[in-house]
Each structure stands twice: as structure tokens, then as C-alpha cells.
Design a binder for these strands. Structure first.
Lengths: 248, 248
DNA sequence: CGGACTGTTGATCGGTATCAATGCTCGTGG
DNA sequence: CCACGAGCATTGATACCGATCAACAGTCCG
């Protein structure tokens, strides 16, 4: 697990910011974000980025990599709450509530922009547009968790899996980790199980069934969507926000 | 279903604001909130307050009453995402994301403070403390949903029920709808089922078991906690934020 | 080559769903 | 006041989805 604090990439030349899914910032904001950012952090796959109980003074934006938020019971049963992709903010709960009730772990090698959380108040005071953006992201995260909760509570295993795959497909594609028909799958079946609230054994069987029905194909670290319409029917899928989103 | 727009109660004499669980506002903020508020709305139990797809121009704070957020699949399977109590904000997702992906329904007769959502930007621009408060509430809501998601995904029916009852007890008590040993239960077993992601029949059996073990007593619209410690052990309960919270 | 981890498959178990019948409570109208 | 009906809760019988246990196969990597 080699964590490294690299030289920073310039915010004005941020490769993420060029993507047209992100709303552009004006010069003043961009300049502030430059100053807000204290550095960059790269962690290996499997590293813990934010730990429940542990109050790091940092807030992060994912620059590159694939990450997941999770929470466990004392006996080890784990639930993955959501995944996060480049452009997503990590640690806002900690910054605002001074309390983290979940853990964030890197699924792939991940690079993060680091911000000091004690400057968050300054953002609200002097950069309302950016504050609004942060709130936007919090609201969107909650919306995703809402959707996930409906899935876990009311869909059966096959439907849950279909829903999750569509969700991951959409987000991976938006992040540049996939195309129209396929996307990266840097996770194990155990990750899927923990996201779906089912057993790894059952995940394996459900995946097999889904492949047998020619809905998807899963081949070493890549999932291909063979029948998007079919999956959407199974899952009763409703896509998330597709409007331009803020990036801090 | 008689909705009524009453004469407003004065924010400065707001009975909620007197409770010491809420952080006091300074005069300038209080004055703004007065102006921000456009009126009051009282709805009967069972009324829909905010509907998925339906873009009302309003944002609400619960003044009195008990409310729930929920979301359904097309075939009618319903999941209750969370409950809401006096002081809680409704419709922030709509205001910020311009999209509501769940429905909000009154469980009891409920009175709401009404705010125009197009003034939310003004809050960020001119009242950073209030904006911060709104974000605080969004973060807290997400934290609750996270906890709920762990519960639905990884606890069994008995544990889920224990968790939910403890959660409701804490929140009802904070809202003045319960004391140390008991709280109001204005919901049916079907509501509980939809919150837990299980069947009404199974909810009934699980409740019976919980009463047989002398953990709770459920008697016409009121739940008594007979063995809080025992429930906490069953549920592996972790209490939520207990610090002072903002009120808008 | 060996070991750790991940995924697969089969057999069996158990928790929760489903179906169906009955009882309870409460509000309404005769 | 009683009768009724609607909605909610209870209970039993049975079915099924997903969990558990166990053995084995594939892959990767040292």
C-alpha cells in the first residue's frame, strides 16, 4: 500500500474539467479552487481513504479511479452503500457533520485532490456558487442512495443485479471507464454481493442466469451489455441526473 | 383531504425554535427567514406533500406532524426511505437538482412552513450560515439513509425491526412525540413493512416475537420500550447525531 | 510448483413470502 | 343502540428464494 503525495496537477489544466459533463467554472472560482486544493494523493487498490471514527482533516475529489463507500455491522456483515467515480466528492459528511459513519475504500489505484475541511466554511462564505455545487453533489448522492435502498428493499436478486449493472454502466461510461456496450469491472463478485445485500454464492448463480439469458457477458474485468433494453425491463430502471454537473 | 393555508406563525415566536436541540439564529437570519417564508400549509394524514415528477415551486420545513419519504416500483412494491419530523426540510433535492425521485406523504395531520424554491440561490448568495445549515441537513439525511441501507441489506427481520424502532424512538423523542420509555406510533404495520422491506405478515410475526421477549409493548398508537439495552444489542444500534442542529 | 484468492456447482436448510381464513377495532349510518 | 363494513392485524399451511455448507476448479502470482 504505497500512498504518495504527488506534485499537483494544475486545476486549470485538469483533464476532468474538460469533459462536457461538467459545468465550467469562471476564472475567480477556478483560482479559488487552486488555492483550496492542498495537494494530490494516490492510493493503491484496496486502501482505505476515509475511515469511520477517524477524523482526517481532509475532503477529497476523485481525480482518477474507482472507489466505494461501505458500512459494516460488528460481526462483519458489510453493505456497500454506493460507488464513486472521478468528479465525486468524498468526505462531505465528515466536513459538515464532523462525523463519518461509513468507510471509503479504493477499488482501483486512485488519485485524489485533497482539500482541507476547515476551509469549507470559507467556501460558503465567499464562494456561494461552489457551496451550491457541494450541496448539489450531496443531494445527488442522497438520490442515488435512495434508489439503491428501493432496490435492496424491494427487488429480488435478479432485478437488483440488473439495476446495479445498469447503474454502474451509466456512471462508468460518464467517467470514461466504459463505452455504450461495455464497461470496466474492477470489482469481485463479493463486492457485488455486498452492494446487493446477498451472498457471493447467490451472486454467482444470478450472474450465470443473466449470462444464460444473453443479457450481459462478463469477461475478465469487463462487462458487456448485450441487451440493454432487456435489462431495463427486468430492473424497472430509471436513469439518474444526466444534466451537466458541478466539479470542485 | 382538506389542505389549508393558514395565517403564518411568527418565526420569532416559533415554538420549535425554542427547543434547545436547535441552534439559535441571529436577528438578521431570523428576519430573512421571516421573509423567506411565504406561508403555512396544513394537510391531513395521508395527503401527498411532494410527488415524484411533480415540480412544485416549494420547499418545506415541518412545523408539526409526522411524515415519510417513499419510492415505488411500477408494479406497486413500495419502499419507505425515511421518516421526517418537525424541523426537517422537505424538497431540497427538488430545489437543488430540479428533480424529485421520491414521494413525500403525511402520516399524521401536518403543518408545514412554505418557502419558494427559487429563492434558494439567494440563501446561498446572501446567507451563508443558512446555506450551510441546509447542507448540514442534506448530509444528515444521507447519513440516515446510509444507516437504513445497511439495515435493509444486512440485518434480518428481527434486527431490522429493532433498529427501526430505536431510530424512531430517538427521533420521535427529540421531536416531542415521545418520552424516555415510549413514543407515538401513528403508522400501521404496513408502513413498518415498507420501511423494512418485508411482508406485512412477517412484520406481524416479528412484532409478536419482540413482544413475547419483553423488548417492547405496542398498544394502540403507542410503543413502549421495555428493554432498550436489549434492543440495542439485537440491532447493533449506533445513535445518530445528537449535537445541536440547525432549523430553517 | 504451491498457495491464496475468486468463482462454480451441488445438496440441503431456513427465513421470509404467499395464500387463505379469521378476528379485531373503529367509524358510519340505519 | 345495534349492524354493518372497511381496514388492519393475527394465525396456520405451504412454497420458494436465497443462505449455508462443502467440495472443487480456475487464475494469478510469488
Amino acid at each position: 500500500m504505497s500512498d504518495s503525495l504527488n506534485a499537483r496537477t494544475n486545476c486549470q489544466k485538469c483533464p476532468l474539467r474538460k469533459k462536457d459533463i461538467f459545468r465550467p467554472l469562471d476564472d475567480r472560482e477556478l483560482k479559488f479552487v487552486e488555492g483550496f486544493k492542498t495537494g494530490e494523493l494516490t492510493v493503491d487498490a484496496g486502501s482505505t481513504i476515509l475511515l469511520e471514527e477517524n477524523k482526517t482533516p481532509h475532503l477529497y475529489t476523485i481525480l482518477d479511479g474507482w472507489v466505494f463507500r461501505h458500512k459494516s455491522l460488528m460481526d462483519g456483515r458489510r453493505q456497500i452503500l454506493n460507488f464513486a467515480f472521478p468528479g465525486d466528492l468524498l468526505g462531505l459528511q465528515l466536513a459538515i457533520l464532523s462525523e463519518m459513519q461509513h468507510t471509503v475504500t479504493a477499488l482501483t489505484r486512485t488519485t485524489l485532490c485533497v482539500f482541507p475541511r476547515d476551509k469549507v466554511w470559507g467556501v460558503f462564505k465567499d464562494y456561494p456558487e461552489l457551496a451550491y455545487s457541494m450541496t448539489w453533489m450531496a443531494a445527488r448522492e442522497e438520490q442515488m442512495v435512495d434508489g439503491h435502498l428501493l432496490s435492496i428493499g424491494r427487488r429480488n436478486a435478479f432485478e437488483k443485479l440488473a439495476y446495479l449493472i445498469l447503474h454502474l454502466h451509466d456512471r462508468a461510461r460518464a467517467a470514461g471507464y466504459g463505452g455504450d456496450q461495455a464497461f470496466d469491472a474492477p470489482f469481485t463478485q463479493e463486492h457485488l454481493s455486498d452492494a446487493l445485500g446477498i451472498t457471493p454464492v447467490h451472486t454467482s448463480r444470478t450472474l450465470k442466469k443473466m449470462q444464460a439469458r444473453d443479457l450481459i457477458a462478463w469477461k475478465r474485468d469487463r462487462i458487456r451489455i448485450l441487451d440493454r433494453r432487456g435489462l431495463e425491463d427486468v430492473a424497472a430502471y430509471e436513469p439518474g441526473c444526466t444534466t451537466q454537473r458541478p466539479l470542485i
